[in-house]
Simulated scan of single mutants.
Amino acid sequence: MKLLNFKQLHRIYLTNSGFFLLYLPQNVTVLEYHIIKGIKNSDEQAFELLFRKYYQRLCGFANKFLNDIPESEEIVQEVFFSIWKNREKLSPKESLKPYLFKSVQNLCLNFIQHQKVVDRSYRIIEIVYENSPHKEFSAYEKLLASELEQKIDDAIKNLPSGCAEIFQLSRNEGLKYSEIAEKLNISVKTVETQISRALKKLRAELKDYLIVVIIAILTSACL
């Protein structure tokens, strides 16, 4: 297929059977038309052309929102994967450029919102874990915090007696390692070791429940 007239880039082709008129919107070039048409027909080379044309620009665009290059690249790849997966729905006479940038923008904004909720979830866990006041919580978050607090107390009871005592002096009474060492007449190193063991056991025992808490908070944020 040979282009007949450069000025009529969007219009006229010369084929073996004669002239071929191709009417396209002004924002769709002939090249883009054939790329999209190729992708629609499962042409991997056409898809690669589209990928090379926009990938770096889209990554830079996403990074303006996220300031995180690896996450930006992952989002852009997700958009391209979606295009390939749904290629049969593509229309060669509709430009993909606006769709690409809008899709990346939406995914970035969703990621930012999701990250805020995740950060909030971990903040709740952190506050409860440290036995700090949680006045900033909503009613639902206070309920989750109360349940988590009970789970932590139950888990502490399963610690070896010496380990549990040291951990409670740190968590419940807010004593520093040096103060605990002086109070129990042991070395600071022993306190550090026992606290480390306590945290390791608690994390292992509470692992599944912490996941449930995070999921519950994420779910409530979407309602």
Results as ranks from 00 to 15, higher is better:
residue 3 L to P: 02
residue 6 F to Q: 09
residue 7 K to F: 07
residue 11 R to V: 10
residue 12 I to N: 10
residue 14 L to S: 11
residue 16 N to I: 08
residue 20 F to K: 14
residue 20 F to H: 14
residue 25 P to N: 11
residue 29 T to S: 14
residue 30 V to Q: 07
residue 31 L to M: 01
residue 35 I to F: 09
residue 36 I to Y: 00
residue 37 K to W: 02
residue 39 I to M: 01
residue 39 I to V: 04
residue 40 K to A: 01
residue 41 N to K: 05
residue 42 S to C: 01
residue 42 S to G: 00
residue 42 S to K: 04
residue 43 D to E: 00
residue 47 F to D: 02
residue 53 K to S: 06
residue 56 Q to D: 10
residue 59 C to K: 09
residue 60 G to W: 02
residue 63 N to M: 02
residue 64 K to M: 08
residue 68 D to Q: 05
residue 69 I to E: 09
residue 74 E to R: 15
residue 75 I to F: 06
residue 75 I to W: 02
residue 76 V to M: 10
residue 77 Q to S: 08
residue 77 Q to W: 05
residue 81 F to C: 02
residue 82 S to G: 11
residue 83 I to G: 03
residue 83 I to F: 03
residue 85 K to D: 03
residue 85 K to E: 09
residue 86 N to S: 12
residue 90 L to M: 07
residue 90 L to E: 03
residue 92 P to V: 06
residue 92 P to M: 09
residue 94 E to Q: 15
residue 96 L to S: 06
residue 99 Y to P: 08
residue 100 L to C: 11
residue 103 S to R: 11
residue 104 V to C: 07
residue 106 N to L: 08
residue 110 N to Q: 04
residue 112 I to H: 00
residue 112 I to D: 04
residue 114 H to L: 12
residue 115 Q to T: 11
residue 116 K to F: 06
residue 117 V to E: 12
residue 118 V to S: 02
residue 118 V to P: 00
residue 119 D to Y: 04
residue 120 R to W: 05
residue 121 S to C: 14
residue 123 R to S: 11
residue 126 E to H: 09
residue 135 K to Q: 14
residue 136 E to S: 11
residue 138 S to F: 05
residue 139 A to K: 13
residue 139 A to I: 15
residue 141 E to L: 11
residue 141 E to P: 10
residue 143 L to S: 09
residue 145 A to R: 06
residue 146 S to G: 03
residue 147 E to A: 08
residue 150 Q to K: 13
residue 152 I to L: 13
residue 155 A to R: 01
residue 156 I to C: 10
residue 158 N to R: 15
residue 158 N to P: 02
residue 159 L to N: 14
residue 162 G to H: 03
residue 170 S to P: 01
residue 176 K to I: 03
residue 177 Y to I: 12
residue 181 A to N: 10
residue 182 E to Q: 15
residue 185 N to V: 15
residue 192 E to T: 05
residue 195 I to R: 02
residue 200 K to V: 08
residue 200 K to L: 13
residue 201 K to G: 07
residue 214 I to Y: 09
residue 214 I to K: 14
residue 216 A to E: 10
residue 218 L to Q: 14
residue 220 S to F: 03
residue 221 A to Q: 07
residue 222 C to M: 13
residue 223 L to D: 10
